[in-house]
Design a protein around this nucleic acid. Structure first.
Lengths: 124, 124
DNA sequence: TCAATTGGTCTCCATTAGAGACCATAGGAT
DNA sequence: ATCCTATGGTCTCTAATGGAGACCAATTGA
């Protein structure tokens, strides 16, 4: 793998791929973006995202916690209360994520065009 | 959704999420990175990636083509020859992708640490 | 004559995602 | 007194998705 003009050894490359893979799965980025605004409770995230199942919300949060992007604070009241917030690492990853999101935003027209071109070329 | 200090309307945000989603799936980034080096034939990509199944390689290539990141050139010889290469859009998306990959590279230690901390805290 | 090559598609099985029931418990409303 | 709601999950069952690999058509080289 190459980054800029640096050759990246194979196992490091796998790690990067792995991290990118996690960040790239269906809900991670969305959760990070939401938590950037402010810390949120589990149920709040659930309501904000709407289309996520409890199971996937839980597993995605666990992954993000394990990788150190968010922290999880339990208050053992009844009913229980669990707050999630971005960690320092989570806040830092926002920057490259923003770069990518801004690029997507700037170029969304071109992608939409490419798609309709492809679709009209391939359906007959 | 917010990017920097700009508020992004909901449907545009969905598009960005959608694009990020595609880029984030298991093989896309790897294929883009490989094609940055030089154009490659189907079988060459297959050999480079090793662990990808034909089915997934084909569907990922189709998605990338539909979104306009790569182009596909068929030479109808026997046996057939199909060349894939990055389009202009594909070359442009490398930049934000590089930013993210470099970040991952710089911070991989912290993530590895976070993981082992999490694992030792949660297994007993 | 036989094997190898290519870019897929197709089928069959394994893994993963999603929908939603369920839980324990307290406080508030009726 | 009794119900209802709220919370942060887990668990089960089903639907969708992913992977392994057989198969194909046709030509060239051994």
């Amino acid at each position: 793998m190459r980054l800029g003009n640096v050759d990246v050894p194979r196992d490091t490359c796998q790690l990067v791929g792995n991290i990118l893979g996690h960040l790239g799965d269906k809900w991670s980025v969305l959760i990070i973006v939401l938590l950037r605004e402010r810390p949120m409770r589990y149920s709040e995230l659930e309501r904000q995202i709407e289309t996520v199942s409890k199971k996937m919300l839980t597993t995605t949060l666990r992954h993000l916690e394990r990788d150190g992007f968010i922290s999880r604070a339990v208050t053992p009241t009844i009913p229980p209360r669990v707050d999630y917030q971005l960690s320092e690492l989570g806040r830092e990853v926002m920057e490259p994520l923003d770069v990518l999101a801004r690029w997507a935003l700037r170029n969304s027209d071109r992608i939409v065009e490419a798609r309709s071109r492809y679709d009209s070329d391939h359906e007959p």
